[in-house]
Simulated assay, not measured.
Amino acid sequence: MGRSQETFSKKENAKKRQQKKREKEQRREEKRQAAASNKGKSLDDMLAYVDEYGNITTTPPDPKKLKPVSADEIMISTPKLEDIEDAGGMRTGRVAFYNESKGYGFINDGMTGERIFFHVNDLTEPIAEDDRIEFNIVKGQRGPQAADIKKIS
């Protein structure tokens, strides 16, 4: 008698394929049932609201707590450093980082909070990290750069 052409591993693989096919069909049927149950929902059931703290809820907000907002008050973006007008020319800030050996550093602008690059050639007197300073902003090779830097006592 001849040996069977079907080996044990072939039989196991065929069983696994059949099992996957049954599971896939079962998942598909569950999705169909879920979609059919959602068809009856109204628009009000599907709406979500945001409360005064920014949390998503299913209840509408209380009209007594609504605050009027003017469209002019809404800021879409933050103005860039070049767009801000200089009022008086000099700005104040703090030295955030200064490397004496390499001759450069960064200033945290007190008005905008931006970090501005400076070079040792732009210093009018010696400074150290965390000193309060006054400076002007000029356009450098890679963007805004501080110039005429003076220490504030």
Rank of each mutant, 00 (worst) to 15 (best):
E25T: 04
P68N: 06
M1H: 10
Q33I: 04
K80C: 02
A147W: 02
D131F: 11
K139H: 06
T92C: 10
P61F: 07
I84D: 00
P68K: 06
D83S: 10
P60E: 07
G140F: 08
A96M: 11
R22W: 14
K64R: 13
I116Q: 01
Y49T: 01
G110F: 09
K102N: 12
Q18W: 14
E125Q: 13
T92P: 00
I56P: 00
T92E: 13
N121T: 13
E114N: 11
E6N: 04
L81R: 03
D51I: 00
M90K: 11
Q18H: 14
D130K: 11
K10M: 15
E114F: 09
E30I: 03
R22A: 15
S42G: 15
I56T: 06
R22V: 14
N136H: 08
I76R: 07
R132P: 07
R3I: 07
M1R: 06
K11T: 12
R22P: 03
F117I: 05
M46V: 10
R91I: 01
K102F: 14
Y104T: 02
R132D: 15
D86Y: 03
R22I: 15
G105M: 07
R132I: 12
K15Q: 15
F118M: 00
F106H: 06
K150I: 06
V50Y: 02
G103P: 07
D62F: 09
E134R: 06
P144T: 00
E25L: 15
Q5W: 11
S9C: 09
E52A: 07
E30K: 10
V69N: 02
G88D: 10
E125D: 09
E85H: 06
M1K: 07
G143F: 11
E134D: 03
K65Q: 13
K67E: 14
K65G: 07
G40H: 10
A36W: 05
F106R: 03
S70C: 10
A146R: 01
I76Y: 13
R32V: 05
K21Q: 15
I133S: 01
I84V: 14
S4Y: 08
E85D: 08
F97K: 08
